[in-house]
Design a protein around this nucleic acid. Structure first.
Lengths: 245, 245
DNA sequence: AGGACTGTTCGGTCCGGGCCGAACGGTGCC
DNA sequence: GGCACCGTTCGGCCCGGACCGAACAGTCCT
C-alpha cells in the first residue's frame, strides 16, 4: 500500500526518447523534415548551421532511435521521418504551449487540421489530398512514371510546356531532380516533389487555380482551378461536399 | 526558393521542452504524477531513488518549464502535473513505440482507453467516471464537504463505519490526510483521494462490488456493486448502455 | 522550548555529449 | 584517370548538468 519502491521502468526509455529531441540541432532537423520531404544530410547540416560531421553524428542517433528512416543513393544520404506516428510526436512537442492558457478552441483547430488534410504546400510543392490527386492523375495519363522515384515522361515534359507555359526550368539546368516522390502524412501516399512539383505548385498559384487559405500552409483549389484541372488532367479536385467555404 | 538559411526558430523551444523529459529522474517523476495525485517532494524523491536535494532541483526545473504545478502547504510541497494537456504529452511520449512495427490494433487500444475512462484505480483510490460519480454522490448526501480540499463530515465518518465496516483507519492515526481531492484527467474533475479514498477503494474491491479488468489499472463495478451502491449512495454506476462486456 | 521532519541552498565532483577540424573513403562527372 | 563533392571517422576541447552531503530554514507536534 505505501509507495512502490520500484522506480517506473518506463522512465528510462522515455528519457532516452526525449533526449533525441532535447538538442537544438536535432530538433531543427526534425522540424525541417516535418514537411515530409527526404532531405540529404548536407541540406540538413546547412539548415541547422552545423558542420557535416556533426550532422552525421546527430543523424546516426536519430536513425538508431527510430525517429528517422534513411535511404542511401549514390553519394547522398536521404533522411526522412520514420513515419506518420513520428511526425505526430514532433508536432505534439512543437505545438505544446503549456496548459494553463485557454486552449485554442478545439473547433477551430480541427477545422484547420481538416483544411491541411485537403490541401497544403509541402515546402515548395503541393501535398494533402490535392497533391496526391494531381500526382495520380499525371501518372494515369502517362505524364509521370513511378519506378523507383518518379520520372517525368517526354509527354510529361511536353504537358508542362504546353499547358503551364513552363520554359527551361525542367531541362536539368539545376542540380535538383526534376521529379521526386514525397510521402504525405495525412494521405500516407506519395505525391510529386522536386523541380517539377515546385513549378507545378508555382504555376497553379500564379494562375489562381489554387489559393492560399490564411497565412499558413493550407491551400484550396478555386472554382476556376477545379474547371481547369478537370480539363487538363481529367481530375476532380473539388474536394467533395462541404470542402469549400 | 532554395533552402531557407534561417534555422527554424521553433527548434530551441522544442529542445528546451524535450530536455525536461530527457532525464531518467524527471521522467520517473512525470510518470508517477500521471496518476493525477499531488505528490510531495519527498515521495517523488523516494520513488525515483534520489536525494531530496536532487529532487528539489529537478522539480524546480519542471515547475519553471510549466510541466508541473505546485502548492505549498505547511512544510510540504505538493506537486502535480500542470494540466490535462501536460498529461497527454507525457502519455504520448511514454506510449511511443516507434512507427515501423505494426500498430497495436487501434480497436483494442481505444477499447482499453475507454475502459480506463469508465473506471480505474489512481494509485490507491478510484478514478474515472466511477470515482467521480461516487465522490459526487458522497457530497450530495452530506458525507463529504468540498471546501478547499475535501473533508469528511461526521455523517461521512459514520457512513464509512456503518456501511463499509471501517474501523479506526480514519481516526487520524496515520499522518495521511483522510480526504483529499485528486484531479481526474479524463473527467477533469476532482474525486476522493487520501486515506478515505484508499479505504473506499479497498472495501469495494474486497466485497467484489468493483473488480479489476485484466492486469492494468482499469476496474468496473460488478452487478452486485451496482445494486449495493445504488442502495448506499443512490448513485447509478452501471456506466450506461454497453459499458459492461 | 525542544525535537522531529520537510524541503532548500551551496559547494564540489564527475560524466556525458555537442562541436569542430583534419584526414579518409566512395561516388559521380568530365 | 583526375577532380570535385558528399559523407564518415577520429581526436580533442569544453560546457552543461546530474548527483550527493552538509548546513540551514521553516513547520508541526509534544
Amino acid at each position: 500500500m505505501p509507495a512502490p519502491a520500484a522506480p517506473d521502468a518506463a522512465a528510462v526509455p522515455l528519457a532516452r526518447l526525449a533526449a533525441l529531441f532535447a538538442d537544438g540541432t536535432r530538433a531543427a532537423f526534425l522540424l525541417a523534415l516535418l514537411d515530409g520531404r527526404a532531405w540529404t544530410l548536407g541540406e540538413l547540416a546547412r539548415q541547422a548551421g552545423v558542420a557535416p560531421s556533426t550532422a552525421s553524428e546527430h543523424v546516426d542517433l536519430l536513425v538508431a532511435g527510430g525517429l528517422l528512416a534513411q535511404e542511401r543513393q549514390g553519394r547522398h544520404r536521404y533522411l526522412r521521418l520514420a513515419g506518420a506516428h513520428t511526425a505526430q510526436l514532433v508536432e505534439d512537442l512543437a505545438g505544446y504551449g503549456g496548459p494553463p492558457v485557454a486552449r485554442p478552441a478545439t473547433l477551430r483547430a480541427s477545422a484547420a487540421a481538416a483544411a491541411l488534410a485537403r490541401g497544403r504546400t509541402c515546402y515548395d510543392h503541393l501535398a494533402g489530398r490535392l497533391g496526391v490527386a494531381l500526382t495520380d492523375a499525371m501518372i494515369e495519363r502517362g505524364l509521370l512514371q513511378r519506378d523507383t522515384g518518379f520520372a517525368l515522361t517526354p509527354d510529361g515534359v511536353r504537358w508542362f510546356a504546353e499547358s503551364l507555359d513552363v520554359g527551361d526550368e525542367l531541362s536539368g539546368g539545376s542540380r535538383r531532380p526534376v521529379a521526386r516522390p514525397c510521402l504525405d502524412w495525412t494521405e500516407r501516399r506519395h505525391h510529386l516533389a522536386g523541380a517539377g512539383g515546385a513549378v507545378l505548385c508555382d504555376r497553379l498559384l500564379a494562375r489562381r487555380w489554387v489559393e492560399r487559405i490564411g497565412t499558413g500552409r493550407a491551400v484550396r483549389p478555386t472554382p476556376d482551378g477545379v474547371r481547369a484541372l478537370r480539363e487538363l488532367l481529367g481530375v476532380d479536385v473539388s474536394g467533395g461536399p462541404g470542402a469549400v467555404a
